[in-house]
Structure formats: structure tokens, C-alpha cells
Simulated scan of single mutants.
Amino acid sequence: MSADVKGENQLYDDINITPMLDLAYVLLVIFIIMTTASVQGIKVKAPLTSAAVSLAKPQTRAITVTRDGQLFLDTFPVTLVQLQEGLANYKAANPALPVVLKGDVDAQYEMIMAALEICKKLDITEIGLVTKRAPQE
């Protein structure tokens, strides 16, 4: 009987950390999902159109021209020279490189044409222009 009493009152030498690790892993997964969901590229106000087509393809690169004429390749600010070098590297890895051009509705047309000229020089033929679907009347 004295052995049973001693076993019930014995202090633990270690702490069970499994529930704490489970919580940490759940929080890590939530953090990863929320972080990747919020990274969608550079925000621009796209022009409206009545015909919209999905341009979602694997390894698609995005060129963005903001209202003030700043260029971005995916989410990184670039100059025209850096844009050409970056696209050339991607084109070397994938000859059928798809590119989407997102221009703000108030963007400088000259910068959009310069980006298109770079794509033409690099023989990039799969180019899509990002627009918003106009409301149906």
C-alpha cells in the first residue's frame, strides 16, 4: 500500500510539450498561408474591358507599369535594362515564356510600349494584357 501512495505523489521529472508543439505548428501553418495569400503583386487600377480571358499559366511572369511610370518584374522594381536582362534569363530557362503586362489605367503609354518592345526583341510571343471585366449593362 505504501508503494501506491508513493507513486501517486511522485513529482514528474519532465513536462509533456506535445500540446505546445502542436499549437506552434498550427500557428506556423496559419502564418505561412496568410503571408503567401497577401503577396499578389503590385496593385494597379486595370482598365475595363467586356471580354476577359484567364491568363493563368505556370511560370508566368508579370510586368507591371504603375501610374507614375515605374516598372516592376513580378514584384521587384526594375529599369528597362534590368527588365530586358531578367526576361532574357527567364526566356533562356523557358522558351515558351508567358508574360502578362499589367498597366495602370493612368500609366504612361510610353512605358507600356517600351515593355512590349523588349518582349518583341526577346521573341516572347505569349503576352497577355491584364484588364478588369466591365460591369454588364
Rank of each mutant, 00 (worst) to 15 (best):
68 D>S: 10
16 N>M: 11
103 G>F: 07
116 L>E: 14
55 L>V: 06
114 A>P: 00
49 T>F: 03
93 A>S: 10
111 M>G: 01
34 M>Y: 12
28 L>D: 12
84 Q>E: 15
12 Y>D: 15
95 P>F: 01
3 A>W: 03
6 K>P: 02
18 T>K: 05
12 Y>M: 15
76 F>H: 09
37 A>D: 14
16 N>L: 13
76 F>N: 05
75 T>I: 07
94 N>L: 13
41 G>I: 05
81 V>P: 00
19 P>W: 12
115 A>W: 07
110 E>G: 09
109 Y>R: 13
96 A>I: 03
105 V>D: 14
72 F>M: 04
6 K>Q: 14
69 G>F: 01
66 T>H: 12
3 A>M: 03
48 L>P: 09
9 N>Y: 12
111 M>S: 05
29 V>A: 10
70 Q>F: 09
27 L>Y: 06
117 E>H: 06
116 L>Q: 15
58 P>S: 08
24 A>V: 13
91 K>W: 04
23 L>T: 12
97 L>T: 09
11 L>H: 10
10 Q>A: 15
124 I>D: 10
36 T>R: 12
84 Q>I: 03
60 T>V: 05
42 I>Y: 05
85 E>P: 00
69 G>L: 00
47 P>N: 10
119 C>D: 08
97 L>G: 07
112 I>G: 06
56 A>Q: 08
63 I>E: 00
42 I>A: 01
28 L>M: 12
9 N>V: 13
80 L>C: 02
17 I>N: 11
92 A>S: 07
76 F>D: 11
75 T>F: 01
59 Q>T: 02
22 D>H: 06
104 D>W: 04
109 Y>D: 12
118 I>F: 09
16 N>S: 11
114 A>E: 04
9 N>M: 12
24 A>G: 06
88 A>W: 00
103 G>D: 13
26 V>Y: 07
16 N>V: 13
43 K>Q: 08
117 E>V: 06
122 L>P: 02
64 T>A: 03
114 A>Y: 00
84 Q>M: 08
104 D>E: 11
111 M>F: 06
89 N>K: 13
96 A>W: 00
72 F>E: 02
14 D>A: 12
71 L>Y: 03
103 G>Y: 08
80 L>W: 01
42 I>G: 02
98 P>A: 04
68 D>T: 09
13 D>C: 10
51 A>P: 00
64 T>C: 04
39 V>M: 14
92 A>H: 05
26 V>R: 08
116 L>F: 10
95 P>H: 08
27 L>W: 05
59 Q>R: 04
94 N>C: 01
77 P>V: 04
66 T>Q: 09
102 K>Q: 12
3 A>K: 06
122 L>G: 02
19 P>C: 13
70 Q>A: 15
77 P>W: 03
46 A>K: 08
44 V>S: 00
33 I>T: 15
76 F>K: 14
86 G>H: 02
17 I>M: 08
36 T>M: 13
34 M>V: 11
48 L>D: 11
41 G>R: 08
50 S>H: 13
19 P>M: 12
122 L>Q: 05
113 M>R: 10
88 A>E: 06
85 E>W: 02
26 V>N: 12
60 T>H: 01
7 G>N: 07
3 A>G: 01
13 D>S: 15
11 L>A: 10
24 A>N: 02
56 A>Y: 01
63 I>C: 01
15 I>H: 10
50 S>W: 04
27 L>P: 01
85 E>H: 07
58 P>T: 02
105 V>Q: 15
80 L>A: 12
105 V>N: 12
73 L>R: 00
13 D>L: 15
